[in-house]
């Protein structure tokens, strides 16, 4: 249990990707629309994420200045909702079930294999932009445990050492 929690609690590394200023200008419209009330923060963040795909530091800073909401407050909201992400998304999203049934049947080893071979932890995206790894609590297919979804495809009854060969099918 403790080991697993330790795996989940790695320090968040700030995204370094630079958004060109002309793209950042697109935020002005959202700021004009929502500035004036802190209650509008969540719709503003949602539209910003639709625009850029994720919410990096620059986007949050600009929203903070434009909407006059402290940046740490915005970051607190972004990190609370699993809908918001602060790292760019990969081409394929892996949703690995860490619910009770899957965990007992070995999804921890699947997670370790992904960490080892792809080099990403939960919530992270591989450097080549291929995968984003998410942990989920149940996919409603406990009979097929351990279960993992890649994009829209569901893979069940995974033999942990076979993890990488499944991923090989997604480039």
């Amino acid at each position: 249990m403790q080991e697993r929690d330790a795996l989940l609690k790695k320090k968040v590394v700030p995204s370094v990707e630079v958004i060109p200023p002309e793209r950042l200008k697109l935020l002005d419209e959202i700021i004009d629309k929502y500035a004036g009330s802190t209650q509008n923060l969540i719709p503003a963040l949602k539209e910003a994420q639709e625009l850029f795909g994720y919410l990096p530091m620059e986007v949050q800073r600009k929203l903070s200045i434009g909407m006059n909401i402290p940046a740490p407050h915005i970051y607190g909201v972004v990190t609370f909702y699993s809908f918001f992400t602060i790292t760019p998304r990969g081409r394929h999203t892996i949703r690995l079930c860490l619910g009770t049934a899957c965990y007992v049947k070995g999804s921890k080893e699947i997670l370790e294999n992904i960490i080892k071979d792809v080099g990403i932890n939960v919530g992270e995206t591989s450097e080549d932009g291929r995968f984003t790894l998410e942990a989920v609590r149940c996919l409603g297919a406990c009979g097929l445990a351990p279960v993992m979804m890649i994009g829209e495809d569901t893979h069940g009854n995974i033999h942990p050492p076979k993890t990488i060969s499944i991923l090989d099918g997604y480039q």
Binding site: L8, K9, K11, V12, P14, M57, Q60, R61, S64, P70, A71, P72, H73, I74, Y75, G76, T79, F80, I86
Partner: peptide, 26 residues
């Protein structure tokens, strides 16, 4: 927030692993 008017720190990663820090833990 209430006394200094600074709001430099906030609750982040709310939930089981909530902590007090700045945006992006800078």
């Amino acid at each position: 927030e209430e006394v200094q008017g600074q709001s430099e720190i906030s609750f982040i990663n709310r939930g089981m692993n909530m902590e007090v820090s700045t945006d992006f833990m800078r």
